[in-house]
Design a binder for these strands. Sequence first.
DNA 1: TTAAAAAATGTTAACGGTTACAAAAAAATA
DNA 2: TATTTTTTTGTAACCGTTAACATTTTTTAA
Lengths: 336, 336
Amino acid sequence: MSTIYDIANACGVSIATVSRVLNGSSKVSPKTREKVLAAMREQNYSPNPFARGLGLDSMKMIGILCTDVSDAFFAKAVSLVEHGLRKRGLDVILGCSGTELSEKKKYLQLLLNKHVDAIILIGSPFRETNDNSHLEAAARQVPIVTINSLIDLPNVYSVDCDVSSGMKQVVELLAADGYTSILYLYDQLTYSGQQKLQGHREGLAECGLPEQPELIRRVERTLGEPQGLVEKLLDDKVPFSAIVTSEDLIAIGAQKALVARGIRMPVIGCNNSILAECSTPSLTSIDNRLDILCPTAVKLLTKILNGEKESAPSQTIFPPLLVFRDSFTVKNTVDK
Amino acid sequence: MSTIYDIANACGVSIATVSRVLNGSSKVSPKTREKVLAAMREQNYSPNPFARGLGLDSMKMIGILCTDVSDAFFAKAVSLVEHGLRKRGLDVILGCSGTELSEKKKYLQLLLNKHVDAIILIGSPFRETNDNSHLEAAARQVPIVTINSLIDLPNVYSVDCDVSSGMKQVVELLAADGYTSILYLYDQLTYSGQQKLQGHREGLAECGLPEQPELIRRVERTLGEPQGLVEKLLDDKVPFSAIVTSEDLIAIGAQKALVARGIRMPVIGCNNSILAECSTPSLTSIDNRLDILCPTAVKLLTKILNGEKESAPSQTIFPPLLVFRDSFTVKNTVDK
DNA sequence: TTAAAAAATGTTAACGGTTACAAAAAAATA
DNA sequence: TATTTTTTTGTAACCGTTAACATTTTTTAA
């Protein structure tokens, strides 16, 4: 590994000059610049990131914190964010904390300890509890951008999708189609989980439908549990005529229960991951626009890192997109 | 941010003593140790990773390089590896290079430039070409552990699953059941892609079945392309009685074409991702044991980082697992 | 009680960059 | 040509650790 001193020696210049060439900061005469660049190429030089980091307190690394990359939703988000950051010359430290609040705190601290330049938080930082004191503390050290959850704290910037309205719209569409007994299956009440549930309730209220506790059920984010629950509800003859869920995986589990019994009714997922397409019948799903949120978050972040905090909106919200597939199409309305 | 000097001052000791407490290296008297630890707690001290990195040329970060985390297979692998590394106090820099060789090279270089302690390579480093000169060069700088591809180079350690035998076994099972015209759909001929194809061919040979070019077809790793191809083959009345694929996603696409026409025949996927379970009928799939490969790779890596290279096997191979689901069960054999 | 050995602590030079400031060289002006 | 201005380059301090080596303190042995 050659150092800045090696390059300086090779060209008969000082290390300051080499550093200047490296950073393109202040002026260097064209011919010395060329000489230095040639030496760098020759020696295959690459600046030591630790030394640089020590001086500048930055290694141009962004921490990405999510719950679980093996989940299709987070995987897509991480992928999109990683691409965006790379394109801008930023490296990515990945942390998958799981759902436990204590773990999330620990991971947040781990990233801070590594002196990342910023943190991108995918999904919700808190669960049922609204304790985000740790986030507040973290934001005092580095800017934080959250994707898919809205947090109002200094130095925290949120890019979110209004899934609440999506959920509401789904209820309205179903109701308009005569599906008035809607089974709502949700998993964790993270920020977006709460939004979804609220949207569902608003939809019910809007349509003058009653809120039935036995039709608003919490399940694990798995295939088996929703499937089992739906089977049980069918066994118990609990009446419902459509299923809406907070996640595609849950929807698919539920749909499997239906398919197994030859029952056909509208099933709506959320997140519109690849799973939705894989399901048979393919799943109608609320798309939370990660394809827009993630690039937006990255752009926002670069702005902030460039010191343009003033022009960085602390909240950016996009509308969701309903993607209709076989499990429920608006055409139903017409066909019926 | 308090430094080692702040702590030293606060306790009236030298920075060397603080450093010793920090590293637990040489002896420090119990009472000064306590005093120092107390000051650290009080000042919420955490050592500057860049300074440490500069001295030790290590920030205890491992680079993970994969093709695409948004793909269920890589997502699962990255997730498993991340967990294992975290548990051992190692941080993770993630790189998603895509399939282009030039990009892979670039990403490899990016990780090296960050002075990662090691690189874990998930999936294949090369495609149809067998050019792994860049890997060889990289391995001269840091140890490399590959997951799901076998590479014979100094300082490269491979943890792999023998999918070839899995593929072979599938053909044998199908043939034994009377399914002798097998459509084989594959995507990229990465290392494991080649292994799979070879296993398939071996299976055909073993069973005395002919290799039919029109039944060994390359498709994109998407849902739509295999679906379209199968539809076309059906239209063209190309005869086949079972479908085997190199990836679950492809299998699901193919199966969708069958389901749409009410045709039922064995469909076998590979990788056994969550997609396989989501499909209806649920997909029989070859599990390449990421649940074992990934922890093994991490353990191997820690061994290597601990300087126990001698006792680190350069190749570790696990057998695959056939996971039978609705799209093809061995019970078929009995039932028929 | 003193000398020797062991344990604890301190001093200081790396590690490889960045950058403020100083100095030298080149260009512009008088 | 001498002087001023501008451009280019060099010097050296600093960033916060680690660790070799030196020194002091404590313990043990004589």
